[in-house]
Every structure is written in structure tokens, then in C-alpha cells.
């Protein structure tokens, strides 16, 4: 085995001067110092409401109506629609999640996977929503005299959603139960995710259950077992009333 020579030491420090933090698909050599640069954080893209990145206006209207039944506005506070879950789902579908961008998507895709083998479909969430919403629109049009889901009264909406959930209602050419499960799952994500992603507006989901959010220090809570926590929630971008103050 060789001891490090003066030459290898010199080449190590020369490399260090060139070292840069790389997290973007480029190989890097790191030696001598930690490759750290101030403010080199990797923040999420903050969602701003307004417009649709993936949904058509008709699709957004239907999703708005569905999420409003999944988590309704009531005496306990805002529901999923008010909390921005439709915006959340739209932005998620438009982003890497919607295209299964990080998943393993090489074939073959057999038609008969076992349930314990998980997702084995080529269909991405974007395609799943588009097909599911089209099937729901066709079902509603045929069943409710040309009306779309959003035009139904809430009782009829609840009955239809419960039918999708239990598989009692079959959508034409689509798995209604799987579509319902996808929308319910994404609605819960939007209701409880940090507001930076477009849902949980005004921290509605966190206020409902008493989750204080991104405070990152609960030493005082651990020190006082079984006592109510009094401070309001904060997200990565703070709280709405911070922004409203001069």
C-alpha cells in the first residue's frame, strides 16, 4: 500500500478548489472541504392559485364538486374545495407526480399482476384523471338527463360517490372504484399538505385537527405531557395573518 505523496496531496487540494455542490445530474469530485455554498437550498416550487395547469375548466369544475363532498365545508370549518384541493391536484398532475416521472416504467406490463405486486400499469395519474373524469361525465350525462356531476344536488352526488367507492356504480370504460380512491387520496394529501403546494389554504386542514405544522421545536410540549398546545399552526411560508400585517 502506498502512503499519500506530496503530489497526491497537491492534486487533492487542487480538486477542492474546483469542487462545487452538484445535485443536478452531474458527476462531481469532492475532496478537501465540504462542498457547501450559502443559500444553496432546494425549495419546492410555491403554488400560486389561478388558472389550471392540467385540468380543463370542465374537469376542474367536476373535481371541485367531488372534493367538496369528500371533505365538506360545515360547522367545523372549510372543506377541501375552500382549502384549494382542486388547485393542489391540478398542480400535482402537471408536475413529476402526474407523469410517474421517478417511477420504474420499463415493460413488460402484464395484464394480471397480483395485488401484492402494487402498481403495474402504464397509465399515469394524468391519464387516469382524464379518463376517469370523462367516464364520470358520460355516466352522469346518460343517467341524469344530460347533467354533469357538478350540477347534481349534493344528495345525488354523495350517492354516486358512495356507489363508486363500493363498486356498485360502474363507469363506462373505466374503473370507478380506482378513480374514486385516487381522488380521495389526493384530496387528503391536499387538505393536509403544507400550503406551499396549493392546498390546505389558510391552514384549514391543520386547524381542524390541531397540527401545528412546520414549527420544528416542541421541546416545550414534551416537557408538559398531556397539556393542550395553544399556538396556531405555521407553514413553510408562515401564516396568512403574518402577510396581512403591515
Amino acid at each position: 500500500m502506498t502512503r499519500p505523496t506530496r503530489r497526491t496531496l497537491l492534486s487533492a487540494s487542487a480538486t477542492a478548489a474546483l469542487a462545487v455542490p452538484v445535485t443536478s445530474g452531474k458527476a462531481a469530485t469532492i475532496a478537501g472541504v465540504l462542498p457547501w455554498a450559502p443559500n444553496a437550498v432546494t425549495p419546492p416550487e410555491a403554488v400560486t392559485p389561478g388558472g389550471w395547469r392540467y385540468f380543463t375548466p370542465e374537469e376542474a369544475e367536476a373535481i371541485d364538486a367531488i372534493v367538496a363532498r369528500l371533505i365538506p365545508a360545515d360547522d367545523l370549518g372549510p372543506g377541501a374545495k375552500e382549502a384549494g384541493c382542486t388547485v393542489f391536484i391540478d398542480r400535482q398532475l402537471a408536475g413529476p407526480y402526474g407523469g410517474h416521472d421517478t417511477l420504474y416504467m420499463e415493460g413488460p406490463f402484464p395484464a394480471d399482476p397480483l395485488p401484492q405486486q402494487g402498481v403495474q400499469s402504464q397509465v399515469t395519474p394524468r391519464q387516469h384523471y382524464r379518463a376517469g373524469l370523462a367516464a364520470l361525465a358520460a355516466y352522469c350525462k346518460a343517467t341524469f338527463a344530460g347533467k354533469g356531476f357538478a350540477a347534481l344536488d349534493t344528495e345525488a352526488q354523495d350517492k354516486l360517490l358512495a356507489g363508486l367507492e363500493s363498486n356498485a356504480v360502474k363507469l363506462p370504460g373505466a374503473d370507478g372504484r380506482a378513480f374514486f380512491a385516487a381522488v380521495l387520496g389526493n384530496t387528503m394529501e391536499g387538505f393536509f399538505a403544507d400550503p406551499v403546494h396549493g392546498g390546505n389554504r389558510d391552514l384549514a386542514g391543520w386547524k381542524l385537527i390541531g397540527f401545528p405544522g412546520a414549527r420544528y421545536d416542541y421541546r416545550d410540549v414534551i416537557a408538559k405531557p398531556n397539556q393542550a398546545y395553544a399556538l396556531p399552526p405555521v407553514g413553510l411560508q408562515g401564516r396568512p395573518d403574518w402577510r396581512n400585517k403591515p
Binding site: T15, V22, A27, I30, A31
Partner: peptide, 9 residues
């Protein structure tokens, strides 16, 4: 001084 890391390799 006699260590280096090669990342994304």
C-alpha cells in the same frame, strides 16, 4: 488529504 468522493457515479 488522501480521500476523495466521486458522486453521481
Amino acid at each position: 488529504p488522501n480521500f476523495e468522493a466521486r458522486t453521481e457515479c
